[in-house]
């Protein structure tokens, strides 16, 4: 079985790596990574905006942000994929390719979850930080920008890496709308071979595991490093673990 799995990898490594590119769309691991990186990178500013809205005292800001977060938290991602998949063409009057559809979904979905991490990171800072900034005459947005967010986001780095791992796993759902990512490539191979599903999906599992484990490990290392740097009389954001 191992021999046949190795054989499958040898015959299909390019498809697993980049899909049918350059004869077709970019796929495979490359597409999975690009999709997840773009997803998390775009979700990040979105999540900061949502978190700040959630912390706002003005209901016009916090109400929609809170509804968004609660809806996303209470609905499976697959539902959101379908919504975006069927709604966007209706709204835009043009068809939207699977990759972009999946990217929008990821930004919305991961952004909503990430916003809770950002919010927890901000709330975990001692209230004295905001007091000190305001007492010096900084406006609320400036205090956020110069004092609160740099600390909160730095503390959140490990949580964000974890979220990235989650995003990589979530990209597999792109399969249902024919996004040519890694799972899609594996399924193509399986459809061609027909008799070796166990080997094909074992290979798929190993690839995901290696990628995700490396990132999880990096998050742990980063967390330790941040904890070490923080060691001293000033202690920040102890509640981040709870936020994850």
């Amino acid at each position: 079985m191992i021999a046949s799995a190795i054989g499958i990898v040898r015959d299909n490594w390019l498809l697993l790596l980049i899909g049918q590119y350059p004869n077709g769309p970019l796929g495979g691991i490359a597409a999975t990574l690009i999709l997840s990186v773009l997803g998390i990178v775009l979700a990040f500013p979105f999540s900061v905006v949502v978190a700040l809205a959630r912390l706002s005292r003005r209901w016009v800001l916090w109400a929609p942000a809170t509804v968004l977060v609660y809806v996303v938290r209470g609905v499976p991602m697959l539902m959101i994929i379908f919504w975006v998949y069927f709604m966007f063409p209706l709204l835009l009057g043009a068809s939207v390719p699977g990759f972009e559809t999946m990217l929008c979904t990821l930004v919305l979905y991961e952004g909503a979850f990430l916003s809770e991490v950002v919010r927890a990171g901000i709330e975990a800072l001692p209230a004295g930080q905001m007091d000190a900034a305001r007492a010096l005459g900084h406006s609320y947005p400036r205090a956020m920008w110069f004092v609160i967010l740099p600390q909160a986001l730095y503390n959140m780095l490990p949580a964000m890496l974890s979220q990235w791992v989650g995003t990589i796993k979530d990209t597999t759902l792109g399969y249902v709308i024919n996004v040519p990512e890694l799972t899609f490539a594996a399924n193509q191979i399986n459809n061609r071979l027909l008799t070796k599903p166990f080997e094909v999906f074992l290979i798929l599992a190993i690839i995901y595991y290696v990628v995700c484990f490396s990132l999880t490990h990096a998050a742990t290392v980063l967390e330790r490093r941040i904890a070490k740097k923080r060691a001293g009389p000033v202690v920040l954001a102890p509640a981040l673990a709870a936020a994850q």
Binding site: P126, G128, Q129, D131, A132, A133, R134, A135, L136, G137, H138, S139, Y140, V147, P150, Q151, Y154, R230, V234, L236
Partner: peptide, 23 residues
Amino acid sequence: GAQLNHLRSRIGFVFQSFNLFPH
């Protein structure tokens, strides 16, 4: 808000817990 910020900037305040910006 701007008036209040200006006012605050003219009042020096020192806290019990220092509240230096650790970053």
